[in-house]
Amino acid sequence: MDNLFAIETRDLKKTYKNKSHPTLNGFSLQIAYGSLFGLLAPNGAGKTTAINIICGLRRYDSGEIFIDGHNVSDGMQHVKPLLGLIPQEIALFPSLTAYENLKIFGGLYGLGKKLLEERIDQLLELFDLSASRNSYINRFSGGMKRRVNVIAGMLHAPKILILDEPTVGVDAQSRRLILEKLTDINKAGTTILFISHYLEEAEQICNQVAFMDNGTIVCQGNPADLIAGNSECSCLESLYLLLTGKKMRDSQ
């Protein structure tokens, strides 16, 4: 394998037209193959912009992005099948059943009928939703919707899975199930980029984390090593607050 990283960004810069300061200011990130990588950042730090740029949903001003060795500036046609994006918002059709939603998303990924049926059955079983496959999404609980949302992003068995806060607004049971299954999927070889506000989650499941602030990466490494390397910090949260500060960021 020539390239070492599933995702690599080099000095990414992005400034929105109506903003005076850059949202991404030299954003450089390396995510190794097979890692479960946590990207942790305060509100408004630019993580959603970074994810959207990596997935080709937003343009960037300068810098380079490599996905599985493919330079994104050469086009997304080779890159898109490798990526599975699970957005923060529930991106499902409420008046359709779980099965119909998954069939449509799988169809849009270009999966054949037989393979799609197999994948839907397999993933519904994995996320404990087989009994609700023919129920309408608008009758699902928050946790069930979140699980279907996760399944929709991984129907095509992507090599790299990007999850933007997949456990927001779900109960402890659903959260545990999602994290457990993500760990299993990672162990099976999928590289996962996991974005979360819950630092204890990242500490629990990620083998690599990066802290992001003001559009750039301020720290990256193994959670245990990062904590061990700083005598003032006993957990990831205290290290995070030490590096990103305690100032509120909602106004950005």
Partner: peptide, 19 residues
């Protein structure tokens, strides 16, 4: 073409359920 078919299927289902 298959993807277009899935889009039509989605719109058909959505319309059918929105009386």
């Amino acid at each position: 073409m298959r993807k277009f078919g899935y889009l039509l299927y989605k719109d058909y289902l959505l319309l059918k359920r929105d009386v």
